[in-house]
Computed example of a mutant assay.
Amino acid sequence: MTVKDMIATYPGSTALDGELLNRAISTLDECSTICAQCADACLGEPGLSPELADCIRTDLDCADVCAATSRVLARQTAFDADVARALVDACLAACTACAEDCESHADHMDHCRVCAEMCRRCEEVCREVLAAIG
């Protein structure tokens, strides 16, 4: 079963458009996983520099914020737009910080390039969700 399938079985109406909700949850989940993987790959790089340590922290912050945002958006019963907006705002900030950090390493670390690209995609979805929430 996919997120889209689950949304289709929802007993009531959802606060967000079903297609946007599906795309947001899926993107947030994927971004969370990729950020965690990037942090792990950074740990495997030889000579862990303070700059790379910062990138790992940013990766892990983004992974956690994306995961929490996904879970809150998935709960549509008695949807609280203020809470959702605050989390999506935080997620947008975390994705921006992570993308910027990873982009600074992207020319010599492919895992950072992939992570930065994913974070930029997640930023776009966050902006769409914020516009939909109002």
Rank of each mutant, 00 (worst) to 15 (best):
H108E: 09
L130A: 14
D101N: 14
E100R: 14
C122N: 03
D17C: 07
T9Q: 13
A63M: 10
K4P: 00
C122T: 15
M6T: 15
A81K: 11
C98G: 09
H111G: 08
D89K: 12
A97N: 14
D61A: 04
M109G: 00
V65G: 00
T33L: 15
L52N: 01
A78R: 11
E117R: 15
A74F: 09
A86H: 09
H108D: 13
F79I: 13
A84P: 04
I25K: 11
M6P: 02
D5A: 06
T27L: 10
A15Y: 04
T77F: 03
R85D: 02
C55I: 07
L21K: 04
A84F: 09
R57W: 01
T9D: 12
R57Y: 11
V114G: 08
L21E: 06
D107N: 09
R120A: 15
E117V: 11
A24D: 07
G12N: 09
D110S: 07
D17L: 12
A24P: 01
H111E: 02
L48D: 02
V65D: 05
G12C: 04
A93R: 02
T58I: 07
T77S: 06
R121C: 05
V129D: 05
T14S: 14
L52H: 08
T33Q: 14
A99D: 05
P50G: 05
C112R: 07
R57G: 15
A15T: 03
R85N: 07
D82E: 10
M118Y: 09
